Amino acid sequence: MVVTVSVRETRRSTRALALLGIVVALAVVVLLSIALGSNRLSLTEVLHALFAYDGSYSDTVVRDTRLPRTVLGIVVGMALGLAGALMQSVTRNPIADPGILGINHGAAVAIVFASAVFGVTAPGHLVWFAFVGSIVATALVYAIGGGRGANSPMRLALAGVALQAAFVGINQAMQVIDTHALDKMRFWLVGSLADRDLSTLTGLIPFFVAGVVIALLLGRSLNAIALGDDTAHGLGANPAVVRVISILAVGLLCGAATAACGPIAFVGLMVPHLVRLVAGQDERWVLGLSVLAAPVVLLGCDVLGRLLASPAELQVGIVTDVVGGLVFVFLIRRLRTVRP
């Protein structure tokens, strides 16, 4: 009994320290995101622009360019981190990620189609197409990767890679047919936080909020279905309903994130694994810490892209592909006992 209490107290202390560390890391990376760029600003200039704005050049750079980009990175990071944690939990697949399984690219296809064919450009309108595209992509992944191997991480990953390649090809075909769409979508399709303003989020906030709230409320139910469907029923959870609601939440989060800044992969893969190292398997903590840790990773990659290519910059989607690709290879090597 004493040992059990000691273990619980140790785990609580670890989680509390992890929460504090993530909050501090988020504050640091937010300041770096605002300060670093083609024109580097000091901490004093950043704080002056945030709390004592007087219209100077540095204040204008912070308020009009850097701050909207940082806020967008926080919101999109939260969405991608939660979507990845939800997918890994509900599918029991350690390499599930909206980018790897082609869900973000499914949303991107719907957005490019809406823009090229119907002339839709407002993010608040595009998000509806993105939501439908992400849901359709999720259904296709499970249809192609289903059957007797439906629970195989490798099989689902291969289905996602195949779909992602198909979606990329469709996007490229639409862009070649419509050169105007090509010029307009070039940077957006690689995943970018650049050249965005807060008006981008205006029509997307309800989708982000709904997705985040639904995801966080599913924590207890996800803990139940992790014990098996029969046990989950005994604990009062309906596994089928939980999975459907989870898919809808993933669609909301991925659709809004993709509409805001394009398809960004691997954030939803990396963050839940890092969080589980300190939080354990309690999905309430995994989801809660992922929503804070994912913006740290996304903004960190965005800052890294600015530093590596200064005075130009690498788009954040390129940096997350490189960093996340290395993490993906590491995870695949750990799955040696899993048959495709």
Rank of each mutant, 00 (worst) to 15 (best):
R92S: 14
L182P: 00
T10Q: 14
A240E: 11
L36D: 00
G288S: 11
E9Y: 11
G106K: 05
L227T: 14
R148Q: 12
Q88E: 02
L227K: 02
S58G: 06
W285Y: 15
T320Q: 01
G211F: 10
C301D: 03
F129D: 07
A122V: 15
A162K: 01
M87W: 03
M185F: 14
E45C: 12
A114I: 02
V327P: 10
L158N: 00
R333Q: 13
A232W: 06
D178V: 07
Q175D: 09
N171Q: 13
S38V: 09
A108E: 07
V28G: 03
L277E: 13
S246V: 04
A116Q: 08
L36P: 00
I318H: 04
V61T: 11
R11E: 15
G251E: 07
G84C: 08
V61S: 05
W188M: 06
T231D: 10
V244L: 12
A143F: 09
G81C: 09
E9C: 09
D302C: 09
T337V: 10
A143D: 00
S56R: 11
W285F: 15
V136W: 02
D97P: 08
A107L: 06
N104A: 15
S6C: 04
D282E: 03
S134K: 08
T70I: 03
L193P: 01
G191A: 05
L289N: 04
R148E: 11
V327Y: 15
A49F: 01
V7N: 12
A96R: 09
S89D: 03
L222H: 07
V136Q: 03
V329P: 03
N171M: 15
E283W: 10
G211T: 00
S152T: 05
A114C: 06
W128T: 10
P123W: 01
A139Q: 10
Y57L: 14
A226H: 11
V296R: 03
I95D: 03
A122F: 12
V316P: 05
L36R: 13
L308T: 14
C254K: 01
C301Y: 04
L80V: 02
D321Q: 11
R334P: 03
L216S: 08
S310W: 14
G317Y: 01
I95F: 03
L41N: 11
L335Y: 06
T200L: 04
A194W: 08
A181C: 07
D321G: 13
S246F: 04
P239Y: 01
G37S: 05
Q315T: 02
L19R: 04
S56D: 14
S199E: 13
R15S: 12
P123L: 06
C301N: 04
P206K: 10
I22L: 11
N151I: 07
L222W: 06
L308K: 03
A256N: 06
P340Q: 07
V90N: 02
D302Q: 06
V303A: 12
V275F: 07
L86C: 05
A150N: 07
N39Q: 15
L126D: 02
